[in-house]
């Protein structure tokens, strides 16, 4: 696999003048590789901060209407996304927006219900879990540049929303 991918991502070139397969160009360019090398040195720190932010959400959220992601013992979540499930999701989403808090839905339509699926007959599948989750998911800000006070503020708004 390693050998095949190495060849295929660079036109199948074994040496300048020989190809063993007709491949494609799917290589990362050096400009981006250099950026990534640098970013990689920052990665652990970023993940640490994101995980800490998720902990803060757990601490300050005082409602059972928001289900936070559960991390199994054997899993370590870098929290690229922080996807929660919320009761009255659309209302909460609107409410937070009106208070200048950005929250995002990843995603409102599961893949099998998109037009693209319909056109190739994939929408015939009944996938009730995915469909239900799509109506409940909401992601709150949790990136590494947030301050604890900001997370506290978001939690306060969410708590208040469900109290009313």
């Amino acid at each position: 696999m390693y050998e095949k991918i190495k060849l295929y991502r660079n036109h199948g070139i074994k040496s300048r003048d020989n190809v063993t397969i007709f491949g494609v160009n799917s290589r990362l360019d050096s400009l981006n590789a250099e950026i990534l090398s640098f970013r990689l040195t920052r990665l652990e720190n970023i993940i640490r901060k994101r995980r800490k932010n998720v902990m803060l959400y757990k601490k300050y959220l005082k409602t059972d209407k928001v289900n936070l992601p559960v991390e199994n013992k054997e899993n370590f979540d870098p929290y690229v996304m922080f996807i929660t499930q919320c009761k009255d999701r659309d209302k909460l989403h609107k409410y937070l927006n009106s208070k200048n808090v950005q929250s995002l839905i990843y995603y409102g339509t599961p893949l099998h219900l998109h037009v693209a699926s319909k056109n190739i007959g994939l929408n015939k599948f009944k996938l009730p879990n995915a469909t239900k989750i799509a109506s409940r998911v909401l992601s709150f800000p949790h990136h590494q540049y947030l301050k604890e006070s900001q997370i506290k503020h978001v939690c306060k708004l969410i708590n208040k929303f469900y109290e009313e």
Binding site: H11, G12, I13, V19, F22, G23, V24
Partner: peptide
């Protein structure tokens, strides 16, 4: 030509 001309045709599954 360069390999990419043939590679692209091959990549979409057509006969070169």
């Amino acid at each position: 030509s360069f390999y990419a001309t043939a590679g692209a045709i091959h990549a979409v599954g057509a006969k070169i």
